[in-house]
């Protein structure tokens, strides 16, 4: 006991430094984790405050989950979330790495810098602004796309009520916003590759393509693996703004734009169904957690150096 007290005293400065952060983590991360228990309860506000509300709410077991999975929604949101994320992970990786390699190989370095700056622009804006950008193209009566279709005497499309186009629009927008950032991450890594590898490859007669295939890509592999694991761990999460702002919360598009995050949000704010939304959120957190653990375990078996932890 004495030892613990003296240890705490010896570490008092460090403990003081982590104190504000710890309080924040407890309030904004760990308390909500405890609140996940509401997924098994029927939430009722208790006048004695937050803890009383959580503790005194009636225990309903798996009722909320049963309700969630009895509807078609659970299937649709899970499918949408996973499929979109898979496409984002694969296309995002290919696009980012390809763009980074092209940027690094351009002869005119000034041009390459200008391109980097331009491509990074979408990363710095919010999806609210992004949704206006999309609107200028897709507005059914004023948008550029319908104007252009008009020149070719093709009937105007009311984009915001036709779900069949939206998977492509969503994927395009995700790539549009992400490539600049993604490619700069890889570019920074390419710049750091020792030039002597390329010189050695050239002396061996390797063409540019072979240099990329046998030097650049293998050197980028650890980074690609780390970023991909992190993305797989987040495969159950999605960019809320992309699925809520960009389709302008259009009900007609829900079948292809509703993901777990938007579902939980609407469950909370529109329906006010706390039990079911919490259940959906817990489902998201729990599966996400298991996925990170599994992917990290596999990566550690295959290539220990690339594992996240």
């Amino acid at each position: 006991m004495k030892k613990i007290v003296s240890d705490i005293y010896k570490n008092r400065i460090w403990l003081l430094m982590v104190l504000p952060g710890t309080i924040w983590l407890l309030l904004f991360s760990y308390l909500p984790m405890f609140g996940q228990v509401l997924a098994f309860k029927k939430f009722r506000i208790d006048p004695d405050g937050f803890f009383a509300s959580v503790m005194h709410s009636e225990w309903v077991g798996w009722e909320n989950f049963k309700y969630l999975f009895s509807t078609n929604d659970a299937l649709v949101i899970t499918r949408n979330t996973i499929l979109y994320n898979l496409v984002f992970i694969v296309l995002g990786l290919v696009a980012a790495v390809a763009t980074a390699i092209l940027l690094s190989e351009l002869v005119n370095k000034r041009l390459s810098k200008v391109y980097q700056t331009g491509m990074l622009f979408p990363h710095f804006i919010s999806w609210v602004i992004g949704s206006y950008f999309v609107f200028t193209f897709l507005s059914s009566d004023r948008g550029l796309l319908n104007n252009v279709l008009g020149w070719f005497h093709i009937d105007a499309v009311s984009w915001y009520s036709e779900p069949q186009y939206w998977p492509y629009i969503i994927i395009f927008m995700s790539i549009w916003k992400g490539v600049g950032y993604g490619s700069i991450v890889y570019l920074a890594s390419i710049v750091g590759i020792d030039r002597t590898y390329y010189e050695a490859a050239m002396i061996d007669g390797a063409s540019k393509w072979k240099q990329i295939k046998h030097v650049t890509l293998p050197m980028l592999k650890p980074l690609m693996i780390i970023l991909t694991i992190m993305n797989i761990g987040r495969i159950f999460n999605s960019d809320f703004g992309l699925f809520y702002q960009v389709p302008r919360d259009s009900g007609a598009l829900y079948p292809v734009t509703n993901v777990i995050d938007t579902f939980v949000y609407r469950g909370l704010m529109t329906l006010g169904d706390i039990g079911m939304s919490t259940a959906a959120g817990l489902y998201q957190s729990a599966v996400g957690f298991i996925l990170v653990m599994i992917t990290n375990y596999i990566v550690r078996k295959v290539d220990n150096e690339s594992a996240l932890f």
């Binding site: 991360s29 308390l31 909500p32 609140g35 996940q36 909370l268 919490t278 998201q284 729990a286």
Partner: peptide, 11 residues
């Protein structure tokens, strides 16, 4: 592991 939107909102 995250606390999720709804519990965070309630907190």
């Amino acid at each position: 592991f995250s606390g999720g939107l709804v519990p965070t909102y309630i907190v």
